[in-house]
């Protein structure tokens, strides 16, 4: 399933479940194996991976584009 990134601001050391609850997401809409990644400690900002449809319902997510090495050029 296509997944996108969502971000959430939470104080302390939040759990994925706390982030999910704050965003109003069901457990099956969140990629548990990805978890919760701290983006900016100063802003208490975290990222998680979410089903694209669920993110759309919550106002949209961030692109999670493919990335590749720059080389060797062809």
């Amino acid at each position: 399933m296509n997944r996108v990134l969502m971000t959430v601001q939470l104080p302390g050391r939040p759990s994925l479940a706390a982030a999910r609850r704050k965003l109003g997401l069901r457990p099956d809409e969140v990629d548990e194996s990805y978890g919760l990644v701290e983006i900016d400690p100063a802003q208490h900002l975290y990222a998680l991976l979410v089903d694209a449809d669920a993110a759309e319902d919550k106002g949209g997510g961030w692109a999670n584009p493919r990335i590749e090495p720059f080389g060797p050029p062809v």
């Binding site: 997944r3 990134l5 990805y34 978890g35 990644v37 983006i39 990222a47 991976l49 692109a63 999670n64 584009p65 493919r66 990335i67 590749e68 090495p69």
Partner: peptide, 12 residues
Amino acid sequence: TRLDGLLSDAIT
């Protein structure tokens, strides 16, 4: 491809 990833991996 064998050599790619997703930006979410880079975030982690």
